[in-house]
Amino acid sequence: MADNTPHDPHVRRMDEILNEPVLDHEYDGIEELDNPLPGWWLMTFYGAIAFAVVYFTVHSIIGDNRLAERDYQQQWAAIEAQQAEQLAAQKAGLDPEALAAEVVSMAAAGKPIYDSRCAACHGGAGEGLIGPNLTDDSWIHGDGTAVPVYEVIRDGVNANGMPPWGALLSEDELKQVTGYVLSLQGSNPPNAKAPQGNKVN
């Protein structure tokens, strides 16, 4: 590096305002000072390079490029264990008669949920549209009692494109909307879709 004195052959003069050496470069009137690289800047550069080396070593050499994958698998295993627990609790907890009685009492609160979540596919009055008619006495899954209806709403029907609302709605909301759906039985709305599944009565 050039030393910072005007005696350096490449230094033309000292800058009149800053008193710093000006190099003997000039391009369309533009001159250049001979300042050294700022120390703090150089330190951030070296620091980033050092970090990069360490990170690469840890992740790609020692970690065999699998650290993120292992992390994910661990976290997902924990979620799956939680899901299995919840499923077992749900299975054990459903009492057909108690549920049937409970949902009837909650049906009124289910209407707004039905309107926002279900009407798009099952029609505003349950007459069926993309999804099946909910007002007739034919059922694709189960016998039209509270438990299977509740389960279909909660778990969805993947094959037919019915989403699992258990992910979006609380247990009470699921019960409310189950009650509302059952309350539509026999309402004979206009434009009803033809019955699908098994007739239960």
Binding site: L23, D28, E32, L33, P38
Partner: peptide, 18 residues
């Protein structure tokens, strides 16, 4: 690198940094 020194009429801070 052209317009700042031209507009400010000042020399570039550091040739080495460039």
């Amino acid at each position: 690198y052209y317009y700042i020194p031209k507009a400010a009429n000042r020399p570039v801070y550091s040739y080495r940094l460039s």
